[in-house]
Nucleic acid binder design. Sequence first.
DNA 1: ATGAAAGCGCTAACAA
DNA 2: TTGTTAGCGCTTTCAT
Lengths: 332, 332
Amino acid sequence: MRQVATLAGVGTKTVSRVINNEPNVAAATAERVWHAVRSLDYHVDLQAGSLRRADGRTRTLGLLVGSVDNPFAGAIHRAVEDTAIKREVAVFASSFDDDPERELRAVNAFLRRRVDGLILTSVKRHPDYDASLRAQGIPVVYVDRRPLDATYDSVTSDNREGARKATEHLIRHGHRRIALLTDRLDIQTAADRQQGFFEALGHAGIATTSTPVITELHDSGAAQHALARLLASDQPPTAVFSSQNLLTVGALHALRDAGAQRSVALVGFDDLPLADLVDPGVTVVAQDPQEIGRVAVTRLFARLEGQDLAPAHIIVPTTLIPRGSGEIPARA
Amino acid sequence: MRQVATLAGVGTKTVSRVINNEPNVAAATAERVWHAVRSLDYHVDLQAGSLRRADGRTRTLGLLVGSVDNPFAGAIHRAVEDTAIKREVAVFASSFDDDPERELRAVNAFLRRRVDGLILTSVKRHPDYDASLRAQGIPVVYVDRRPLDATYDSVTSDNREGARKATEHLIRHGHRRIALLTDRLDIQTAADRQQGFFEALGHAGIATTSTPVITELHDSGAAQHALARLLASDQPPTAVFSSQNLLTVGALHALRDAGAQRSVALVGFDDLPLADLVDPGVTVVAQDPQEIGRVAVTRLFARLEGQDLAPAHIIVPTTLIPRGSGEIPARA
DNA sequence: ATGAAAGCGCTAACAA
DNA sequence: TTGTTAGCGCTTTCAT
């Protein structure tokens, strides 16, 4: 910046003014500065600036998702980025694979880089870093999962309701022996979806004592094996509710391998690319990850812009999309 | 940091030493400092540190991909992140939708944040920001696409070869009227794949005058419409090669809509989730985006660690995965 | 083993 | 409208 100032024959503060579009610079001066900037190929150091800037903003956001590789997370990420870029804010994205230790490390990494705000997915319902975030006064919006602490904003799908819809849909097609494939129950979405599942069974007066529930499923391979075993048992389910996108993929493979894709019904939570092209089409309760991301980042920027909002738990509706697999009737 | 120093009864330099695990600190002193750090919930400011640090490193990387929403990019991103996190390096991820203007803006944003290195996808074969990167001495590895300038590292799939394999596969099943669905030809991957496609036709002695080639296809919707029109024409193709994942999705829809999924063959470039569950299974030339990301980030860190490597163009092989759609024979 | 002073590149506050 | 000085939080250098 000093070089630019020298070349343009002005003080550094004037360069700063020009670069940041501050008022009170003569047009001719500004032109000389821009010329110097271009000819020296100068790029401001935003980090150095934020060190001294009154609001201390780094124009940086932290985004934590299960994995940047998951289509659900990808859609959230894209929505966040699109809004952030308009405000010249850059996004750090991290994956944590539902590992609480990685979660903590990622948030600490964000803090050390002085992000202005955070969009977080958490496994824990009482995150360890909570006190730090509060002390630093960093705005946070949780996505996908909602922490128990209601003083934070959160944006999630209607998990319980969505799972209930899915299960009712299967019940409506005559199923009474419906298997549930799910992840660790300390993960809030898994717990909520399980709750919705059992609610639907309860309302229909279906005894749940012999309902096959398989938990601790983290990936499609595990789901595939679990369902394969279930299908081979003496009391196989007539329908399956898989409560997460990767588990649905595993379930599809297991059904296909067992030749049961046309006899055992399946509804998945969260949509999948190509779900409509599989035969039969995969019936799902679709989430709207793009909308989740959009709402979350909008909320975050509102707070960063100083709006004094009451913490809100925003619920983005899900949609049951019947495509075939969920409409297979129970055998007599 | 001053507060920590005061509380621990030491100078700020000692705090700095402890935090950065520098030698020459008495164990007892270090313990006092760590205690103060914990009780004040102190987090270093990495940005301030990098301002003064001798190597000037920010422990930050910039990653530019078509869209963080695309599974191909997601896999690259994840691989980059996994290596970066081990070195306590954070990753800025941006999407640019093959828009040269967005590409330039994204790179400039990275420069203003003083990233240590870049992993870039580019639409342009001579990127505009090239001179800046060179002047700043920032190491760059290109992924997916290779710039004309051979002084940069790049990691790509064997696009020409992969497309050739795909096309030969179709020819082997008796096809001579094969349609090509592709994107803008100024995109290097599109051009390379088209070249491989025509090479295969040429080797087989197939006249290409009436070969249906549809370019400028950016998304699945466009591909779907284009192929639908082609299938309805008086000279419909007996096979289709779609040269990108989104275009393959569009092609699948068009074939399904026309009821041609069992009569018209299809091979796609780049794998798709669920491709094996569609009926018939989707034959693809699979790329290995995770490996592309892994190789690229490894290369980048090697340079950051000062290794003096000759620029290399690393090619990650593709694999033809026959699943059914590509093995449909040509009708007589 | 420890600390004091200087300075990284920038912006705030104030002076001219 | 413009420039000067100080200082953001840290690491470097050099002294003790």
